[in-house]
């Protein structure tokens, strides 16, 4: 970005005299924080079902249009109740992951909270989401955002399914199904068909939820040029987190393609 005032269409020098640079103290430039994400991950998709939450994101980190890194796992397990899915800048994702690990170590000095009968206070997905939303809002208020759209999926304190969103602006919301990036346009309509409201999640089985998310990942791969055909998927319920990092995309349909010829008049 060009910060020089001449580039902003200010009045002409020959009419109003030369620009007074004094306030810039010589060569000093205004402080510029993160202006654009560089290495990025695309959509994250998630849906609640009657016992838990399913979340998925593909394993690609793009460098602009270049599919630069193909084994980047964007779902991070926090504890047996929480998985965090990251879209957006990957270096900021690493930073947040380290923050979460630090938090996890601090919170679990007295036992790891991993076993089912551990009755110590364990951070729920709701707590993790609250923490992340505070971090994200603080950073954007400093005009130095962490360039991510994040889904926090898991269980709340009462072991009820929990799913919520937070992004680089500190905006938060929750819903029966959520998706970031392209997913908000392509996956959400499919998922909403299945769970139009909170009530309908109560009748959704784990298999149905996983199937729906897999379908969304397929549609996203068809239509999103920054996506990839290998993804991570996690199911969080009372049994804990079941996270698979290298799931190939299956049942793609391309057979129709050889029947398409030209763009109108072509027949061969």
């Amino acid at each position: 970005m060009n910060h020089f005032p001449e580039a902003w269409g200010r009045p002409r020098n020959d009419v109003y005299g030369a620009y007074n640079w004094a306030h810039l103290h010589g060569q000093q430039q205004p402080q510029t924080h993160t202006q654009t994400p560089i290495v990025t991950g695309t959509s994250v998709v998630a849906i609640k079902y009657k016992d838990g939450t399913v979340i998925a994101a593909d394993n690609l980190a793009s460098y602009g249009a270049l599919a630069r890194f193909t084994n980047v796992h964007r779902l991070k397990r926090f504890n047996r109740k929480t998985v965090v899915g990251f879209g957006g800048d990957v270096s900021d994702m690493q930073h947040i992951d380290r923050l979460l690990q630090e938090l996890n170590v601090e919170e679990n000095y007295y036992g790891n909270g991993e076993s089912q009968d551990d009755d110590r206070a364990l951070m729920s997905a709701k707590n993790v989401h609250k923490y992340l939303s505070k971090v994200m809002y603080k950073r954007r208020s400093d005009f130095n955002p962490l360039w991510n759209a994040i889904l926090v999926a898991g269980l709340d304190e009462q072991d009820k399914p929990f799913l919520a969103y937070v992004d680089l602006l500190g905006t938060t919301f929750s819903g029966p199904s959520l998706a970031t990036g392209f997913g908000a346009h392509l996956a959400q309509p499919i998922l909403r068909h299945l769970v139009p409201d909170e009530q309908s999640t109560m009748s959704l089985s784990k298999e149905q939820a996983v199937e729906a998310v897999k379908e969304c990942m397929k549609v996203l791969f068809y239509r999103d040029a920054r996506s990839m055909n290998e993804y991570s998927i996690a199911v969080i319920d009372k049994q804990g987190v079941e996270l698979k990092n290298k799931v190939p995309l299956e049942n793609q349909s391309w057979d129709f393609a050889d029947r398409i010829r030209g763009y109108g008049t072509q027949t061969v």
Partner: peptide, 8 residues
């Protein structure tokens, strides 16, 4: 893994 590592 290194803390916050992405990829293998």
């Amino acid at each position: 893994d290194v803390d916050g590592a992405v990829g293998a």
